[in-house]
Design a protein around this nucleic acid. Structure first.
Lengths: 342, 342
DNA sequence: TCGGTTTTCGGAAACGGTTTCGGAAACGGT
DNA sequence: ACCGTTTCCGAAACCGTTTCCGAAAACCGA
């Protein structure tokens, strides 16, 4: 457990500590021979530069803070994995915190990370807009930040977002083309921007195809399977089951499908389903669930690159990247058997 | 972005830096009045102790390394959340790394964390035993480590494990009692200890009930849904479908169930199913999947406590904690309708 | 009032690096 | 042989804390 320091190496070779330091940092003047000699014997001695000391002397933490709203839907797990890999390859460490879909927890997390001197933050905000003023304040102070996915429009910082309106429109239009006359949208949270955007896409499709308000509904749910179930219970009670559901995410869709199946409805014959933000489970249920896949890896990586850019060029313009996805049509939304239920 | 340091506070109050430091660390002699004055003005000035400098001067990183094998099954996500919460409440930060079920990646992760001077490690090993010698070496050097879940028997370090043999036995016996004559076990990886233990429990039940080798099989699969599917394809091809399957985890069970359903088998009427390490999806599929729930939160927390104990009392004895679970019987494994399919 | 304790605090050395500055050594051209 | 450059390296300051040591101040009993 005894750590070998730069001094030990310097003493062994009868050079100064600054020379050893130089050997490890390419940017300074040092003769090639001495550099190699130092690196070689340092390795022999098992020396590793102490990252903490490095951080202190450089006034850089080499840490990146990542704040995600939750961990239980695999979406943000994947984001976490990608960011981790990316930043480690760039010499940074990632401090990951999750907010449990709770604004106060989120604020705590961000403050903890800032107190821990992270060099930058990637934030995928939780439901609600209450922390936006704080984020704006920090952004204006010059703190490098990139926001992912759930963005308050008013944020002037760099952002990575998914084109929810467009793909929600496509998904809804698909249901209309399948000849569903009455379509309900289970919409997540009203004060969640991805929800509002998906609602917007849904409404656009309704308008384009001249479906009137008697024939669609937008029902606020939440993001969990349980909440999908509860809504269906209520609809069954009121004998108000439409031809199709478009759901804010796969979990809500799965919960709703389950409840309907348990009550004797056939999917997709009686009710068709489309989810969003495709999960790996979509292919495991019967029938397989149609869903919009988001390029999660690419979006996360882009957020990482943007943050590095902001750290290294604090005066550069903020950017916004908008991603598109892929609509995977499966059995849950098609009644003829042209789509094999693999 | 200008950080206020202890010196700024000291200068403002005309005291020495050591006095300010003392005010923030309860253990030293300081007059109550001065302490309160210092804390008050420090707060006014917006001073936060620089954690990096603190770490350097104390020769402690206040970081804990957590290495998990994967992130995509919700099990280890939950472990990560719990450990995160626990250590933050104790003033530590958690550096989380995932190994992608790859031994080399795991070794890299552990080395990265050790180079980053984590004060201790919690490791949930990946499949395979190749890194055990390295772990033993570090443990013998005095590095505080706690192992979770997948443990090489020969590791002399502290461990938190689940009683796989016992609960695998119970689950299997349940299938026998449901009058299944021919039962196959989809077993995960042969070189994964949780797999071997579950195999052991399975065999025990077979022996106890005098089921002979013609009437059971143990089939190595892997841990993913895809691999469950592949095995079933093969078995269907050979017309070799038993009365029931006991699976190493829920994902394999779900994959296998899906494949059987797609080929016209009724679950549980034709084939009964039991999973393990219950996931939230178990309740969302039709029929709901019987499974063994593990006390994930409690196990993770125990691992955290053990590690803290090892850090603070390096000379204490290593401990081993063995946890028990809960077998949730659902529709997938019972043919009469005594269990409602909620 | 005085000597001896006990409190309370300042100075300074660590912790392990980076980085500026300036000087010695090597080099190169005349 | 000499002078001006360039290359290379050592000394020392610095990053922001903690903590040891010792001394001043306060207290206390006789």
């Amino acid at each position: 457990m005894i750590h070998i320091t730069i001094k030990d190496v310097a003493k062994r070779l009868n050079v100064s500590v600054s020379t050893v330091s130089r050997a490890f940092n390419d940017k300074y003047d040092i003769k090639k021979d001495t550099k190699e000699l130092i690196l070689k014997t340092a390795k022999e001695m098992g020396y590793h530069p102490n990252p903490i000391a490095k951080k202190l002397s450089q006034n850089k933490s080499l840490n990146i803070g990542v704040v995600i709203p939750e961990f239980m839907n695999s979406y943000y797990s994947e984001v976490a994995i990608v960011l981790q890999e990316f930043f480690i390859s760039k010499g940074y460490q990632v401090l990951l915190m999750q907010s449990n879909e709770n604004e106060e927890q989120e604020l705590k997390n961000v403050k903890t990370l800032i107190n821990n001197m992270v060099d930058g933050l990637i934030i995928a905000p939780t439901v609600g807009y209450r922390n936006t003023p704080y984020f704006i304040e920090k952004h204006n102070e010059g703190y490098p930040m990139v926001f992912l996915n759930r963005i308050d429009e008013t944020l002037p910082a760099s952002k990575v977002i998914f084109n929810n309106v467009k793909w929600s429109f496509f998904a809804t239009e698909h249901l209309i083309r399948q000849n569903n006359k009455k379509i309900y949208h289970l919409s997540g949270y009203n004060n969640l921007c991805v929800s509002s955007e998906r609602v917007e896409g849904f409404k656009k499709a309704m308008n384009k195809h001249k479906i009137t308000k008697e024939n669609y509904k937008i029902i606020e749910t939440g993001l969990l399977a349980k909440e999908g179930m509860e809504v269906i219970e209520d609809l069954i009670f009121h004998h108000d089951i439409p031809d199709a559901f478009f759901c804010v995410n796969d979990m809500v869709a799965l919960g709703a499908m389950k409840k309907l199946k348990d009550n004797g409805y056939k999917i997709p014959d009686d009710v068709a389903f489309v989810g969003f933000t495709e999960t790996r489970i979509a292919k495991l249920v019967t029938p397989q669930l149609s869903s919009v896949r988001q390029p999660t890896r690419e979006m996360a990586k882009k957020a990482g690159e943007m943050l590095l850019n902001r750290i290294n060029n604090p005066d550069s313009e903020t950017e916004t990247a908008i991603f598109n996805g892929e609509f995977n049509i499966r059995k849950s939304s098609v009644r003829d058997s042209s789509i094999p239920n693999i």
